[in-house]
């Protein structure tokens, strides 16, 4: 993929978290893929997110952690505007996608276009009631791709990308729901990869899986960062520590601290973060 130029807004991006902390001494931080600026979100009268400003670095894994109800999933679902599916939801502020500086939350931006650029993997594996092949090809079909060769290539590449190809190559036309939980989740990852998304959102992708399946998904996420920018919500702090490059700690709809993952886990600057990490809270 082409290298993306670092946007000029970089200096202003960190907001409430002091800048500089995100980058390890001596190495320039990777370019930005997206940035949330002063994002607030309301479910009807309830304000679920309070003015969140946070960068998303390209080809890095950013983990969102925090106690239940802190708004981490709500925040994640702003990135592909899933909230637009339900009435009474309202965004304020912006999420800018680079390199084209598009505000994803702009009224004039079609949520469908956003979802074509920002894909998502859900908490519980949700394969469609179709064959493995059609599950992976779904996003391409939605994009009007009819060329059989192209579809075949993309399905294989995506299944390989999701480390599922070897397990299913002989039964591509069987129903996806016959796979095991971990395989189903990898199928959903392949489905999300097939359309070459710019950002891949993971919403607690392993919470419904056993430890072995969890390990394989985590390994996969670490691999995937080479092709796509990743945002992951997790309730499991060890998971955040294992897979992510950056971590954001959220509490009651606010972003308490954002930094490199090792900094958050070993030298958090905020007392609240430290309490949560060390298990004194939450």
């Amino acid at each position: 993929m082409e290298a993306r130029t670092q946007p000029t807004t970089h200096a202003t991006m960190l907001g409430r978290t002091p800048p500089g902390a995100a980058a390890p001494a001596g190495s320039a931080p990777p370019p930005l893929k997206a940035e949330s600026r002063g994002l607030s979100f309301h479910y009807g009268k309830f304000q679920a997110l309070k003015s969140i400003t946070m960068p998303v670095h390209e080809h890095r894994v950013t983990a969102l952690i925090g106690p239940s109800g802190c708004g981490k999933s709500t925040f994640l679902r702003c990135f592909n505007r899933m909230h637009d599916l339900y009435p009474g939801n309202r965004y304020e502020g912006e999420i800018v996608l680079y390199p084209d500086n598009t505000n994803l939350l702009d009224r004039d931006v079609d949520p469908i276009e956003v979802r074509m650029r920002v894909s998502m993997v859900f908490q519980k594996p949700n394969p469609f009631p179709k064959s493995i092949y059609e599950n992976v090809a779904y996003g391409l079909r939605v994009r009007g791709v009819k060329n059989r060769n192209l579809l075949d290539d993309k399905v294989e590449a995506s299944l390989r990308g999701a480390a599922l190809w070897d397990e299913v190559k002989g039964r591509l036309h069987e129903v996806g729901s016959n796979l095991s939980g971990g395989q189903q989740q990898r199928l959903c990852i392949a489905r999300a990869l097939a359309t070459d998304p710019e950002i891949l959102l993971f919403d607690e992708p392993t919470s419904a899986l056993d430890p072995i399946a969890t390990a394989s998904i985590e390994e996969l996420i670490a691999e995937l960062r080479r092709q796509v920018t990743i945002l992951i919500v997790t309730h499991n702090m060890q998971q955040a520590a294992r897979v992510s490059d950056y971590t954001a700690y959220m509490y009651l709809g606010e972003l308490i601290e954002f930094d490199r993952t090792d900094t958050i886990f070993f030298k958090p600057r905020r007392k609240e973060t430290e309490d949560y990490i060390t298990g004194r809270f939450g």
Partner: peptide
């Protein structure tokens, strides 16, 4: 790896069609 090369205009055209 093959890419599904589509310009934003093409994508927008597709979406508009689907929305119709």
């Amino acid at each position: 790896m093959t890419y599904v090369a589509q310009t934003p205009e093409q994508i927008r055209g597709l979406i508009a069609k689907a929305k119709r």
